[in-house]
């Protein structure tokens, strides 16, 4: 338990500096703290998903679910902000370094000193993101993906086929929350500070826009959507800086507000004109199609011998 004084001790500036110096001096500690941090973040994300799924899955109308999730998120933010014991309250916890911060002691002072550890860490993030993408692709293109889509389309019909709808929903909320927890932890180690005020509903909104822009239930589309919205985000910041050299009294906040407004307009336009997003939903790619596609490609008459399907697994059918 952290008493009031202990809280002061980990939240103040000297604690922040000592965290940084430890990270610099002990690579092993630095990396293992990061790994443990990620593990805990994923665990916490999963637990949070499980907790929120309890009320969320017991409501009848679809949109109550979005409200429960909004309530869940805001509850968490308010609790963290007002309970300094959790994460140093409103100001957050600073002095969090990337796991490769210690590398900077091997470089002479200059741009490389800062860029190499950060760049390396960015590469790790990209790799992990790719891993999540592959995982998502795999579970979507499987009988489980079929199950998920069926529940989305018609819960009652899925139940009539002996599918345990609430269990699957719980599972997928936990999986999604674990990924979100991972993402949050990766982000915090990157920017070096964890504050509750970074995770406002506008962030959730950006993620929705990414998702719908790319196309519902299309992971590749999601990559494109993420790319576009991230470019909009970074691009607007860069152009803001560039513009400031011409317009001296440009309010930098306007760029941020403008971006949020553009995202809202993009989402509205998508909803009105192209709900499918850029890329429409695709088939669930399993081997099941090969039997049928094979027949179609050969333009054969309906054959009585189903054994001509390719690949393994034919033994038990005789």
């Amino acid at each position: 338990m952290l008493s009031g004084t202990a809280v002061g001790n980990i939240c103040n500036v000297s604690a922040m500096l000592s965290r940084e110096s430890i990270a610099l001096a002990y690579p092993a500690i630095s990396v293992s703290v990061w790994v443990i941090g990620l593990a805990f973040a994923m665990l916490a994300g999963g637990i949070m998903g499980l907790v929120v799924s309890y009320p969320a899955l017991r409501v009848k109308e679809e949109w109550f679910l979005s409200m429960i999730l909004l309530v869940g998120g805001e509850t968490f933010r308010i609790v963290v902000t007002n309970t300094p014991q959790i994460g140093c309250g409103f100001n957050g916890l600073a002095g969090i370094t990337t796991p490769f911060y210690w590398l900077s002691s091997y470089f002479p002072s200059g741009p490389l000193q800062a860029e190499v550890p950060t760049g390396l860490y960015a590469a790790v993030i990209v790799a992990l993101a790719l891993g999540c993408f592959v995982f998502a692709q795999k579970i979507c293109n499987s009988p489980y993906g079929r199950l998920l889509k069926s529940i989305r389309d018609d819960k009652v019909a899925a139940e009539s086929l002996a599918k345990d709808v609430s269990r699957v929903r719980k599972q997928i909320m936990v999986i999604g929350s674990v990924m979100a927890g991972l993402a949050g932890a990766l982000y915090v180690y990157y920017i070096g500070v964890a504050t509750p005020e970074d995770y406002i509903p506008a962030l959730t909104f950006s993620i929705w826009v990414m998702m719908i822009l790319g196309g519902f239930a299309n992971n590749r589309g999601l990559l494109v959507g993420t790319f576009v919205i991230t470019m909009l985000d970074r691009g607007s910041l860069v152009s803001g800086i560039l513009l400031q050299s011409y317009l001296a009294n440009l309010n930098p906040n306007l760029i941020v507000y403008g971006r949020y407004m553009v995202e809202a307009v993009i989402l509205l336009l998508l909803l009105v004109f192209r709900q499918k997003g850029i890329f429409p939903e695709t088939r669930i790619k399993t081997k099941a199609y090969t039997l049928f596609d094979f027949k179609k490609n050969n333009n054969a008459e309906p054959s009585n011998s189903p054994g001509e399907g390719p690949q393994t697994g034919g033994a038990a059918s005789g």
């Binding site: 009988p143 489980y144 899925a158 088939r283």
Partner: peptide, 28 residues
Amino acid sequence: RLFTGMTVLENTMLAPRGQKGERPFVAP
């Protein structure tokens, strides 16, 4: 009541019980 976002084949393939790939940690 069909699953309108899924193809006819996917609808039919959904039905069998006890599919191993319907468990999230077997699916990958």
